[in-house]
Amino acid sequence: MNLEHLAKQLAFIHEIDKLKYIQRKTRLFNSQRNENDAEHSWHLAMMAMVLAEHANEKVDIQKVVKMLLIHDIVEIDSGDVFLYDTTANHTNTEAERIAAERIFGLLPDQQKEEFISVWEEFEAGETAEARFAKSMDRLEPILQNVSNEGGTWAEYDVKYETVIKKSSGIQRGSQILWNHTQVLFEESIEKGILKKS
């Protein structure tokens, strides 16, 4: 047994526990409590397993789940950027790249390279798996905000046009889920929990 190999894996496992302390702006379904990044990643992975049949293309669900469990680990160092933030861009940044190198660098080399590769694939959003994973990442806050009578849309005065712009990528992963999302938007506008400019 290679003790150095195991020690690196355990160091990584210890480090990623910090994801539980990264607070997001969105709140749990029907709740006033904010979600943390670990809860978010777990929920997305479960959503992907349940909703995989609605992907535009056949996907390797194990890879999708891996992407969703890995995608926000960099936020241990870089922090969470609110999806609807108007000053900070919610895209891959140099800070996230540095975080990926440091955190995944705790792992043995082969696992480090695999995890960074999966993270990069998610960020690029070009494969069927990445498109579907990203659609889960955009769908969850919509479902949360609908369940919370507008949630962060109301709290931060986020308008319909911004929500559409930030969430339209759902259709790249699942047209069926995008169609359903548009119904949710219309219902939210009718209820007054999502406002047009």
Rank of each mutant, 00 (worst) to 15 (best):
N145Q: 02
Y160P: 02
R97P: 00
E126L: 11
N145I: 04
D157Y: 11
A88I: 12
E129Y: 05
L143G: 04
K166V: 05
P108E: 00
T127N: 04
T162D: 02
E101I: 07
E140Q: 11
T152E: 15
G105M: 03
Y160H: 15
V158I: 15
L143F: 13
S168F: 06
T152S: 13
F122A: 01
N89F: 08
K112Q: 15
T91D: 09
R131V: 03
S167D: 08
I142E: 07
E121S: 01
I98Q: 14
I170T: 11
E113N: 07
Y156F: 15
A154R: 14
E123R: 11
R102K: 15
N145W: 10
A128L: 08
Y156M: 04
I170L: 10
T91G: 07
E121G: 02
E114Q: 08
Y160W: 15
S174Y: 01
L107F: 14
E161A: 03
T152G: 07
I142F: 04
R102Q: 12
H90L: 02
R138D: 09
F104E: 03
E96P: 00
Q144N: 13
A128D: 13
A88F: 13
A95F: 05
L83H: 06
G105E: 00
S174V: 00
I103K: 02
V163H: 12
A130S: 12
E96I: 01
S168N: 10
A124Q: 11
D109I: 07
R172W: 14
E121K: 00
I103V: 14
G169M: 04
T152W: 03
A124M: 02
S147Y: 06
A133W: 06
H90C: 07
Q110E: 10
W119D: 04
S168Y: 08
S147F: 09
E120D: 12
T127Y: 02
K166Q: 13
A95I: 00
R131E: 10
E126R: 05
L106M: 10
R102F: 08
I164Y: 03
L83T: 14
R131C: 10
E120Y: 06
R138N: 13
Y160M: 11
K166H: 14
F122S: 03
G150A: 06
G173H: 09
I142G: 03
T87C: 02
E161P: 12
K166E: 14
E114A: 02
S117L: 00
E121M: 03
Y160G: 01
W153I: 03
K165N: 13
G79S: 03
G105W: 02
D85F: 12
V118W: 01
S174K: 05
A124G: 00
V118T: 11
L83G: 07
R102Y: 09
L106K: 10
T152H: 10
F132L: 12
I164N: 04
V81N: 01
W119V: 06
R172V: 11
E126G: 04
E96K: 09
W119K: 08
A154I: 15
T93K: 08
E155G: 01
I116Q: 11
